[in-house]
């Protein structure tokens, strides 16, 4: 199929940036979205033009590296998938596709479609861990009994790959879904309870400092999340924070 692409081009962080039109032909419906961009870039390379910069790594939907705001939605129109798992069969011959970087103050554009998501790393460093000495005295995994229900919820929260689709989709560029998933995965387990109070206070403080917006509970994040992280996590973090801030 033949497509018309409107892609955000920006030379570097300081460049103003603009949308540039490209035509691409003979796109197979079985290609992934990133493969389609590979074809475009090969074409641009052959013409001696600057290829479009975009993030990608595993291309298996589990690393959280690929991003892209496609036709007004994070990771495109499909549900529960990252951009690398979005297939061109979701589009029709002759379609115009808008491709933009994730937009947030805390996600500054580095080049073209590549954004700096290290603000997520800094939030994690503020408390997204448990302080356990694992060298040589590892406990048996089954030594501490954990309710199946909580273990499942914790695991569900832990499937967050930190791609930032929640921030990109939120009208407030809020990171609540990401942060709440990271808080929840520990809050639900006894190993995480030890540092629960400082964790939620510190991570929320960092989240605010990084310039993410507040949560309006629109639910856009949950819909666009490639991993189906639930809004329940946001409520859990609201509870955790309320209790922690009164201690």
């Amino acid at each position: 199929m033949n497509l018309k692409l409107k892609i955000w081009r920006q030379k570097d962080a300081r460049d103003q940036g603009r949308m540039v039109d490209y035509n691409i032909s003979d796109v197979s419906p079985d290609m992934s979205f990133l493969e389609m961009l590979d074809v475009l870039n090969e074409d641009l390379n052959n013409k001696g033009e600057d290829p479009v910069a975009f993030d990608h790594d595993c291309r298996e939907g589990i690393c959280g590296m690929c991003s892209l705001y496609i036709n007004g939605e994070a990771h495109g129109p499909d549900r529960g998938v990252t951009t690398c798992q979005l297939h061109m069969r979701k589009f029709k011959d002759g379609d115009t596709i808008y491709i933009e970087p994730f937009r947030a103050k805390a996600f500054p554009v580095i080049k073209d479609l590549v954004v700096d998501r290290t603000s997520f790393d800094r939030i994690q460093q503020a408390g997204g861990f448990i302080s356990v000495n694992t060298s040589g005295n590892t406990q048996d995994a089954n030594a501490i009994p954990i309710k199946k229900h909580n273990a499942d919820l914790s695991f569900d929260a832990a499937t967050c790959i930190g791609c930032g689709a929640c921030v990109a989709s939120c009208k407030n560029a809020s990171a609540m879904l990401f942060v709440s998933a990271k808080v929840s995965q520990f809050a639900l387990l006894p190993q995480g309870r030890v540092e629960a109070t400082e964790r939620v206070l510190n991570m929320v403080k960092k989240m605010d400092e990084e310039g993410f917006g507040a949560c309006t509970n629109t639910g856009a994040c949950e819909v666009e999340c490639p991993k189906g992280i639930s809004l329940e996590n946001i409520a859990r973090m609201n509870r955790e924070y309320l209790v922690a801030s009164m201690k």
């Binding site: 705001y69 007004g72 129109p77 989709s169 560029a173 917006g213």
Partner: peptide, 14 residues
């Protein structure tokens, strides 16, 4: 929190 908005934003989808 979002100084620069999207050219195309399909908010009605979610």
């Amino acid at each position: 929190a979002r100084p620069k908005g999207y050219v195309k934003n399909n908010a009605a989808a979610n």
